[in-house]
Design a protein around this nucleic acid. Sequence first.
DNA 1: AAAACGTTCAACCGCGGCCGG
DNA 2: TCCGGCCGCGGTTGAACGTTT
Length: 325
Amino acid sequence: MRNPSSSSSSAAAAKGGSGSTTTPCCSKVGLKRGPWTPEEDELLSNYINKEGEGRWRTLPKRAGLLRCGKSCRLRWMNYLRPNVKRGQIAPDEEDLILRLHRLLGNRWSLIAGRIPGRTDNEIKNYWNTHLSKKLISQGIDPRTHKPLNHDSSPVINAKATSSKINRLPNPNPNPTSPVVTDHDTPNSDSGTPIKENGYFQSANLDQYQAPGSRTVAVGYTNNLPNSDGSGMGLKSNNGFSTEEEDDINYCSDDVFSSFLNSLINEDGFAAQHQLQQQAATGIAPVSDPLLSINVSSFGLGAGWESAIMSSSFNQNDPKRVNDQI
DNA sequence: AAAACGTTCAACCGCGGCCGG
DNA sequence: TCCGGCCGCGGTTGAACGTTT
């Protein structure tokens, strides 16, 4: 809301206009649209502070607002909530976003759920305006987190793909190539992966490995689902027997929460992961913490997604998390 | 100084999942 | 089982703002 006093209702009205199946609350004539005014913010905040969130459809009327419920919910979630953190994304937050995006794809709400105070909208915007470009400038496909010249798969037109198809994005649409060698790393001309501010060094993301590193694994991709969910099985070469797979397919909230938390602190993660993997399989894990970012190591077979859902620190919507368990 | 161009981000849209009747 | 409403999600838009020419 750069200038709340200026109404963009006409532009917004011109934008919609499809006339197809619009949500009733949004098609109602007479409802205000566009930037929120401080007065509206206050009305909404006061009402929610008093009555609590929820029942968005009827909330505007009860709160005395000429807005649709969706608009109210969005305003509250992305702007007015007390614990929404404003201001620049810190390097460590950026690092975490990169990690989580590589794991989760464009599932902004899940990513936001792991970054306290940040909203899905904010992260999505930040990704599209900063991180995506940054990765591209480094020769990395922001969609797959793989080198651009390595990815021969056609770029899916975001417009052409339904948003719901993308609900289960596969960060690596090419699971047959789990290993990226140094031949595939971006050349230094397109930007060295090690940034001067150092956060990429700490990030230790696959593609961001310093030149000269021999092998960069993308091991987790083996067990990530395809966009249709068909790739969830543990048929990959994880070395587990069916029985073992049954065991490790169980992934508790704590385990996965630890996994995600460990992305924040990779050293801790590496140690924890080794214990986890050894306990579960008896197989000595690889020592390279880089290789440890491997979902399969946490038994994330068919249940990996629900584990993510249930383990999310979702300050945005705890109810939804519970709902999805 | 101002026009042109680029970037940011709040807000909107359509869709699908969930749930109660 | 079906249907309709609600909710939340990801994609997209466009006005405001910043930068360059």
